Amino acid sequence: MPTAALATTRAAQHAGLVRQVHAAKTWLKLDDETYRAALAAHAGGKASSKACTVAELQAVIAHFHRAGFPKPGGGKRVELTRPQKKMWSLWQQLADQGRVEARNMKGLCAWVKGQTDNGVEALAFLTPAQERTLIESLKRWADRD
C-alpha cells in the first residue's frame, strides 16, 4: 500500500476511534472530569482523545466496554469486579426483602448515583473507597428491621 494511502487509512481509523470514545462518553453519561480522568488513566496521561494514538484509543474503548458501553453488535453483559459483585448481591438481597423495586442493574446504578458526591453512574467508575462505603451502606440497609 502506498504511504499516502496508509496515512489516510490510519487517519480514518483514528477519527473513527475518537468518535467511538465520544459516543461511549455520551452513552455512559460521564461528566467531563470523570471522562478526562478515565482518558488519562488509560491513555498515558493524555486528556484529549484527539491527542491519543490508535492503541491508546483502543485501550480507552476497552475500558468503556468493561464499564458497560456495549460492543458493536454485542450484548451489554459486563464482567463485574469482586466489590461490584458484592454490591450486586446485596442489592438482590434488598430486592428479595422488598426494600427496592428495581432489582436490575439500572436500579443499583441509580442508587449509586444518588449516594456518591460526584454522581457516578457506572460501577466501573467507582473508586475503591467509594465501593467500600457503598458496600457497608448496603449491608446496614439489609440488616435494618
Rank of each mutant, 00 (worst) to 15 (best):
P72G: 06
T81V: 00
A38P: 01
D143G: 01
D31F: 14
E131G: 07
G75P: 03
L80S: 05
D32A: 12
K139G: 03
V18Q: 11
L138G: 07
R82I: 00
V100Q: 04
G98P: 07
E33S: 13
A95G: 04
L57A: 02
A43Q: 02
K86Q: 04
A7C: 07
S89M: 08
K29R: 13
Q92H: 11
V54K: 10
R36G: 08
T81M: 00
N118M: 15
M1P: 09
P83L: 04
K25Q: 15
R19H: 11
E33Y: 10
W27N: 10
L90P: 06
W88Y: 10
L57D: 01
K139A: 04
V100L: 06
G75Y: 02
H42P: 03
A11K: 14
A43L: 02
A15G: 09
A102F: 08
L6E: 12
C109P: 04
E101T: 06
M1R: 09
W88N: 11
W111T: 08
K50R: 11
H22Y: 14
R36D: 09
G98T: 07
Q58G: 01
W27D: 11
G114C: 06
R144C: 00
L17V: 12
R103A: 15
T34K: 12
G107A: 10
A102G: 08
V54S: 09
R19D: 14
A55F: 00
W27I: 06
L6Q: 11
R132I: 11
A37G: 00
T8V: 14
R36K: 15
A43P: 02
L17E: 10
K46D: 00
V112S: 07
D96H: 12
D143T: 04
A24I: 10
A142T: 10
A51D: 05
A102D: 15
H65V: 07
A67T: 03
V60I: 10
S137M: 08
H42Y: 09
W111C: 08
A47N: 01
S48M: 04
R132G: 07
A40W: 03
L126G: 04
T8R: 15
G68A: 06
K50H: 09
K86A: 02
T133H: 14
A142P: 03
G114V: 07
L17N: 12
R36P: 09
K86E: 02
M87Q: 10
L57N: 02
G45P: 01
K25S: 07
M87V: 06
L123P: 11
A55M: 00
T81F: 00
A59I: 04
G119Y: 14
